[in-house]
């Protein structure tokens, strides 16, 4: 075993040294006129708003110029969910008792009240982040993370049964694939109009209308990513809670 550990440490150190060496040769951070700033980026900087329909350049790149990559990324998240569910299974609905949190302790009134007060605000903020990713920092992924966080807080405070009551499995399953589905449906929509997959300017519409449609399409994707992201995080956490409770079950029955 010892030589194995040694080999691992040695190979990782070699890798690290190599990386450090190469980083030393890279153009220093923030310097002007490096190759990466002269090739594709200028077009993104100058034309993003007009071409890609997003004031936020990052959003323009993510959703439009490189939308196909983002489609892949949401698929990665979806795959992660499928992986978790395939390994752990869904939450078992009638396993835990109300009034008992994930750690098996009774929850306090203060926490419950605060959470009940906070969750709508957090959700509201999440929707804002999703919808305004187009012209300010944020976007679907970030919004989704916030949605997920709000639901997780709620679950911590009120326990799994209450959460699954609010967002039941039958509701979550379709929403989990909504991000992938949003991308694909918008892509196919373009193809129905005879343009390439994931083209957001549809032909045959007037300039104004086309831009409005593009805005709607992009927003649909943003919201889709947000909702699906949030639900996927929630589902993953639910699966894991069930796993924890399952292990804690003997302790609970003793006390």
């Amino acid at each position: 075993m010892k030589w194995k550990k040694f080999a691992v440490v040695a190979s990782l150190s070699v890798l690290g040294l190599l990386l450090a060496y190469a980083i030393g040769e890279m153009p220093s951070f923030g310097s002007k006129n490096t190759p990466d700033k002269l090739h594709v980026i200028p077009r993104y900087l100058q034309k993003s708003e007009e071409e890609a329909g997003a004031k936020n350049i990052i959003t323009g790149v993510i959703l439009n110029y490189r939308g196909y990559d983002t489609e892949g990324e949401v698929t990665v998240i979806f795959s992660a969910l499928c992986a978790v569910v395939a390994l752990l299974g869904r939450e078992k609905r009638r396993l835990s008792r109300s009034g008992v949190d994930a750690a098996g302790k009774p929850t306090s009134v203060i926490v419950n009240t605060v959470v009940r007060f906070l969750v709508p605000i957090i959700l509201f903020f999440a929707v804002y982040v999703m919808l305004h990713g187009e012209d300010s920092p944020g976007g679907g992924f970030q919004g989704g993370a916030v949605v997920g966080a709000s639901i997780i807080i709620f679950t911590l405070a009120f326990g799994l049964p209450k959460s699954t009551e609010k967002i039941p499995l039958g509701f979550r399953i379709p929403l989990e694939s909504i991000a992938v589905f949003a991308f694909l449906s918008m892509g196919f929509l373009g193809m129905l109009f005879g343009v390439n997959f994931l083209t957001f300017i549809l032909p045959g519409l007037s300039h104004e209308l086309a831009h409005t449609v593009r805005f709607l399409m992009l927003s649909f994707i943003e919201v889709g990513i947000g909702v699906a992201g949030g639900i996927i995080f929630t589902s993953i956490v639910f699966s894991m809670i069930r796993e924890d409770e399952y292990e804690l079950q003997p302790d609970l029955s003793q006390s």
Binding site: N64, G67, L198
Partner: peptide, 13 residues
């Protein structure tokens, strides 16, 4: 070849 989103190669995928 196929331009996803109609973007020419170095800019799009």
């Amino acid at each position: 070849g196929y331009k996803v989103g109609g973007w020419a190669p170095p800019w799009g995928i």
